[in-house]
Simulated assay, not measured.
Amino acid sequence: MPPLTSPRPLPFVVRPAARTWRCEPAPADVRDFHSALPDYSPTPLTELPSLATELGVGRAFVKDESCRLGLPAFKALGASWAVHRALAERSGTGEEPAPTPAPAPVTLVTATDGNHGRAVARMAHLLGQRAHVFVPQGVHPRAVAAIVAEQAEVTEVPGPYDEAVRQAARAAAAPDAVLIQDTGWPGYERIPGWIVEGYSTLCTEIDEQLAAAGVVEGPGLVAVPVGVGSLAQAVVTHYRSRPSGRPPALLSVEPEAAACVLESLTLGKLVSVPTGDTIMAGLNCGTPSSVAWPHLHGGLDAAVAVTDADSARAAARLAALGVSSGPCGAAALAGSRAVLSDVGSAERRTALGLDAASVVVLLNTEGTAANPHSPTC
């Protein structure tokens, strides 16, 4: 069935067949790896009844990634697993259950809008490696300073995220360098795949936390902020790899200035879009990851794009409820508000299979990171 588009100007697409799509699950040993890390503990899943009322659903939860492994974003999950796998492979130790540094220092290279680069730099420092991080134009100076504080070399690129990725890939061609990038393209897919696997721990925690809260059948809707789509791929993998049970609707949320996944879903093929300025810097990506795309195309129920003003209002709302959220993390709430509460919401609710008793989970992917030089959140 072709995508159904919203009759109002809201940048939105819904895909009714996505809930029947299936894929293989993430490796079971990822959670064990993270559990063995010194700073690991599950991040909170906070129930916010006032948000449930606002969204017109039964219960609303926020998965709060504002402090994950000592950093203010979920990215450390993917970076830690991918760096571990890459260094273990390079050193010939295979798949050891604990982090194993390579016998000689290497340079871990990446491009970032902020949080991924800081996570790679943190892992490099912890494991006695070097880090070289490329940041595109428009990244906030505080984010750059936070990466520098992790003792990484930083190169600021006078261009968009995609150009920073290209420059990082060139730099990683050196024999003593390894590219740890969270977007993939033909010929570079294994490490981005490991990063996605690392994010599966977040989803496993949600299962356990919802069960503890008395949610037996799982969520009805999961809203996830999207840049190149790696976290969304992990979410799709988690919920679309189950052989039975009621699958939730999965909603991706992007800035209107960089809605590459929405545009790709609308056209039915992976495309690049020009990007503009946005306060959602970590989502300011013009091309979906080629690794993520088959999962996004197969398993995402809907995609929506939101404005900076939407995101800012959502961040303020979460702050008032005691949840620290940066503009990217607040995008999940902004998108859910637009889909479930704005004009035309009745049609969208029906398309997503939601009603007044539904359970909604919002992924708050980052905190405000008020002190980027702090070693902890």
Rank of each mutant, 00 (worst) to 15 (best):
L45Q: 10
Y239D: 00
L352Q: 03
G286T: 03
S324F: 08
S272Q: 12
T275Q: 00
A174E: 12
V135W: 01
S341I: 01
V157Y: 05
A28S: 15
T278N: 09
G298F: 06
L179H: 01
G92F: 06
V215N: 11
V291M: 04
P327E: 13
A330M: 06
P99R: 12
I147E: 02
A18L: 04
F74Y: 14
C285P: 09
S341Q: 12
P9I: 04
E256T: 15
P247I: 11
Y161R: 05
S66A: 15
V304F: 05
V222P: 10
G214K: 06
G245S: 06
A223L: 11
A305M: 05
T100Q: 06
C260F: 04
D342T: 04
F74C: 13
G92T: 10
A319W: 09
A86F: 01
R170K: 10
S244R: 11
A334C: 02
P274M: 09
D301C: 15
W194T: 03
L202E: 06
Q137A: 15
T100D: 09
D113F: 00
D162S: 13
Y239P: 00
V253P: 09
H116L: 09
D342Q: 13
V109A: 00
V261M: 03
S241R: 10
V304M: 07
M280H: 02
S311W: 06
A351V: 02
L4I: 15
P3W: 02
R170D: 11
G70E: 11
L321T: 00
A36V: 08
N364W: 08
D277G: 12
V235Q: 10
V120N: 07
R31T: 14
T107Q: 04
G56T: 14
V323H: 03
D301M: 11
A281P: 02
A17Q: 15
G299M: 09
H34Q: 03
D113R: 04
P105I: 00
A211H: 13
E24G: 11
P101A: 03
S290C: 09
V235Y: 01
V228G: 08
G367T: 05
V215H: 10
V226E: 04
L127A: 03
G218H: 07
V165K: 07
G268P: 02
H297I: 00
A173L: 09
E47V: 06
I147R: 04
D308K: 12
V62T: 08
E96T: 15
R59D: 12
V144R: 13
V339C: 02
R118I: 13
C260Y: 03
E47K: 08
V271D: 03
S50V: 14
V273A: 12
R242N: 07
V228C: 13
I279P: 00
S272E: 14
P49C: 08
L270A: 14
P247R: 14
S41H: 12
L265N: 13
V253T: 07
F33C: 13
S244P: 03
L55Q: 14
A169S: 14
Q181Y: 01
T201K: 10
W21G: 07
G353F: 00
D310I: 08
L333Q: 07
A212K: 14
A213V: 05
I191A: 03
R118Y: 06
V148R: 15
A346V: 15
P27H: 06
E156D: 00
T278F: 08
A320V: 01
P101W: 04
Y199A: 07
P243S: 00
H373S: 09
A370P: 03
V83F: 08
R337Y: 12
Y188L: 12
V226N: 04
V339L: 08
A314T: 05
C67R: 11
